[in-house]
Write a protein that binds this DNA or RNA. Structure first.
Lengths: 227, 227
DNA sequence: GGCTATCCTGAATACTCGTTCAGATCGCCG
DNA sequence: CGGCGATCTGAACGAGTATTCAGGATAGCC
């Protein structure tokens, strides 16, 4: 796309001019609509309205509704991954990193804890290959990050996992399972309880006393400057 | 249902006469269609075709597509619960009961381990009240059964759960999370691995050696006579 | 200034699908 | 027998919606 021989390179004038900006706005609108109406309930018109444009433009940029939905998925994937990496880098030590992951997943972060969206993604992945690929990638990255923290802790002699692969898989699956309750607003399930339940399970799995993960998080989750 | 004052009571002629039979067939067809096309992809015509009748009849019996979907949910709920209860009663002792639950959930039973259907249900429950109620009821029953087994084992001095409520919630959530992998046929996830991972987690939670849950299940899961 | 490619709009189009409906079929009863 | 209510069918209807399309605006370029 950047390879167009001449094109409207740069230009620099008002931001409203940039079609890239428009595209991004549409993708974010698409994500928002999926989140609150679900994949099945998302109409081209809804996306256009949420993005403040016409339905024609949505199709102009993405070819079809399915195209817009798919690209929206890769867009959240990027956002999610960027956030995860930068957050994790900012915190040292396996204990605090594990706590941070619990924070992110329990909804403190803007993208990671977006469980309604993930539920939708899972179901769509049952029958749509793009969704399946997006989910798999997301899952693999999250699990890899978790594994890294576990291994790091084990190397430091802080954690004592009996089986790293099994522990990683169980802890990430437990998160998914608890997330269902959170997404459905099951009475009694709150972000705080989610964190407590998950960290206690982590303590069991890692052979450390539950107190190791109590106390405040080392640092409040950083807010994005804007959006 | 047997209480109709006069109606076409009995009659005894061909089975094709009984409208109750027809209703049931339609409900089961509905469940089958939901399972393989999803709620969003289920059409009245699909249901009619799967049940071997006309779309008119589906609407005649259930009023609307939404009505058919909802009644299909309460139908699976009944089937699920009936199966769970009868299976559990047939096995004595907390250890074997826990293993049985792992078996049922990992897909050995016809209804309980029907994870594709449950995934669909979760997402529908985000926005549909009937689905929400069905899911909550299903979840509560499953969790209650699990808790009963845990308490029973604790009373017998076999299990040593630190916190029964937390353990129950974590073990059932872990199942849900693992089930996602199973439903999506994630490479590396099989019913056997599902069982192993879950039972090992149970061993940790219940303070027993993992070996306690190894070995063969006490008894193969019973097959329904027909359907 | 004219020309062109890009970006954008909203009405028109075509199609899918839930629901309605005008009847067929059939067992039963008076 | 003739009527009746319950069950069942499939064609017709109409609402909703993705996609197409005929153009309008704008910016850069010759």
């Amino acid at each position: 796309m950047a390879g167009t021989t001449s094109g409207q390179a740069a230009g620099g004038s008002t931001a409203a001019r940039a079609p890239e900006e428009r595209r991004r706005r549409i993708l974010e609108a698409t994500v928002a609509v999926i989140r609150d109406r679900g994949f099945a309930g998302t109409r081209v018109t809804d996306i256009a309205a949420a993005a403040g444009t016409s339905s024609g433009l949505v199709l102009y940029h993405f070819g079809s509704l399915a195209g817009a939905l798919t690209q929206a998925l890769t867009h959240v994937e990027d956002v999610f991954y960027g956030e995860l990496e930068s957050e994790l880098e900012a915190v040292p030590g396996p204990v605090d990193r594990l706590r941070l992951m619990a924070d992110l997943a329990s909804g403190a972060g803007p993208a990671v804890g977006d469980w309604t969206l993930w539920l939708e993604l899972w179901v769509r992945a049952l029958r749509d290959d793009d969704a399946r690929a997006a989910r798999e990638s997301l899952d693999r990255r999250w699990r890899a990050a978790l594994r890294r923290v576990v291994v790091e802790g084990a190397a430091a002699g802080v954690f004592h996992p009996a089986d790293v692969a099994a522990t990683t898989l169980r802890l990430s699956s437990l998160m998914d399972g608890l997330a269902i309750q959170l997404a459905l607003a099951e009475p009694g399930m709150t972000p705080a309880r989610f964190k407590r339940l998950w960290l206690d399970a982590a303590a069991l799995e890692l052979g450390v006393p539950a107190q190791a993960f109590r106390g405040r998080a080392a640092r409040p989750v950083r807010r994005r400057t804007a959006s």
